[in-house]
């Protein structure tokens, strides 16, 4: 298995957001492999394949048709196969309720989609370069929402 690049998956139903996401990584020129899925059902179909290559970081949009990010998060956390996957919530809203719920369900970080492409690049590079082993140990509700 190749370990020289970071495997990243994004599940988001919004085409523009998927484009910003891949464009940002393209411009960042990082050694990453980005795969995107159009909703939660596609994502889980892929992850549930036995030979699926599991991502290092999974970006989950919350508001998706068919299967929401919250449902995906729940399924993933219930399956020990995915215990090493870092889960980043990637959502338009940053309501207290959503932040609280995803934190309790075991997500690693909450990202509010920025409205500036430069900021987006900065956020994504930050998340990818974070030492998650270390970060997860010190995780608490205050630093759960990513602030830049």
């Amino acid at each position: 298995m190749a370990t020289d690049y970071t495997h990243i998956i994004l599940a988001d139903d919004d085409e523009d957001d998927r484009m910003f996401f891949t464009d940002a990584f393209d411009e960042l020129k990082m050694t990453v492999k980005v795969t995107t899925y159009n909703d939660g059902v596609y994502l889980m179909d892929y992850l549930n394949q036995e030979d699926a290559i599991l991502p290092n970081i999974l970006f989950l949009d919350l508001n998706m048709p068919r299967k929401s990010g919250m449902e995906c998060l729940k399924e993933i956390k219930e399956n020990s196969r995915f215990k090493d996957v870092v889960i980043a919530i990637y959502s338009t809203s940053a309501s207290e309720e959503d932040i609280e719920n995803t934190f309790i369900k075991g997500a690693n970080i909450y990202i509010k989609k920025p409205s500036d492409f430069k900021v987006l690049k900065k956020v994504l590079s930050n998340v990818v370069t974070t030492n998650w082993q270390y970060h997860t140990n010190g995780l608490n509700k205050d630093n759960f929402l990513l602030r830049l």
Binding site: T92, P114, S115, L120
Partner: peptide, 14 residues
């Protein structure tokens, strides 16, 4: 207002 209105606006800004 928080989600659906912000989304297109955010995209415009991006």
């Amino acid at each position: 207002a928080s989600h659906d209105l912000q989304e297109p606006l955010r995209k415009i800004q991006t």
